[in-house]
């Protein structure tokens, strides 16, 4: 995947994710609609690839206004990843030379790798995660399980133990996936499945779409850096 194609795919996928987020706000308070209706229209322009420098600039400014409106992210990590993608995309579009464009887009790829590796690291150093207790707590009393029936998973400690180690090992090993195109493709299918599971079990639908939007950056990055080694 060349640089220009990776940028275009990121615009399309990020535009779709931002549109999906924005549509969810259109049935709420008027002062929220005033922020999210323009965001929806800009997201459509981003998908279509029209005036992308101006569109990403305005989307970033709207992102700041939304942060101010909610005094922080509305949807935690998904909002932060949305802003990170927009920021890197904007930098890559306005940078004066191809070298700086690649640095900006490479930063997004690097952050995607860190998003998995650091998540794995902070879990594996916690004894509650290593014993499976932390994931049991998530199902037993956290705000995330989407239905009461999911809380019963706490009665399957061996399953939760296996799931905990599966998630931690995969997150920690993710950087090694960059060593070959095949391993990266397999890893991205697994991570997309992981986000899909989180969307189903914990209702984190926005994470699913916005993390996938960063995948073209890492596919390009792997080819650019590792395939030439």
């Amino acid at each position: 995947m060349n640089f220009d194609l990776a940028i275009r795919l990121t615009e399309i996928l990020a535009g779709f994710a931002l549109a999906q987020q924005s549509i969810e706000h259109l049935t709420t308070f008027a002062n929220e609609r005033r922020l999210f209706l323009p965001r929806l229209l800009l997201a459509i322009l981003l998908i279509l690839g029209i005036q992308t420098v101006w569109v990403t600039s305005l989307l970033l400014l709207l992102g700041l206004a939304i942060l101010h409106r909610f005094q922080g992210p509305y949807n935690g990590g998904a909002d932060r990843m949305s802003l990170l993608i927009l920021f890197c995309l904007w930098l890559a579009l306005i940078a004066p030379t191809r070298y700086w464009q690649e640095v900006a887009f490479g930063y997004l790829a690097l952050q995607l790798v860190l998003s998995y590796f650091i998540s794995g690291w902070v879990k594996v150093v916690n004894p509650d995660w290593r014993s499976g207790q932390a994931l049991s707590d998530v199902f037993q009393f956290s705000a995330y399980p989407v239905s009461e029936s999911l809380r019963q998973w706490v009665e399957s400690p061996r399953l939760l133990f296996a799931m905990s180690w599966g998630v931690m090992l995969f997150e920690l090993l993710f950087p090694f996936a960059l060593l070959s195109t095949t391993s990266l493709n397999i890893a991205l299918i697994i991570t997309a499945s992981f986000h899909f599971s989180n969307a189903c079990l914990f209702g984190l639908n926005r994470f699913f779409w916005i993390w996938i939007a960063a995948y073209p950056a890492i596919i390009w990055f792997q080819l650019r850096i590792f395939a030439t080694l």
């Binding site: 942060l67 990170l84 952050q111 998540s119 509650d128």
Partner: peptide, 25 residues
């Protein structure tokens, strides 16, 4: 203050679910 809110997006910590804290209802 708003720019301070933006910084964690540009330099994220990515410490999802590091500790399962008490949960409010």
């Amino acid at each position: 203050h708003t720019l301070k809110l933006l910084l964690p997006a540009l330099l994220p910590s990515w410490n999802f679910f590091d500790v399962i804290a008490p949960s409010p209802r």
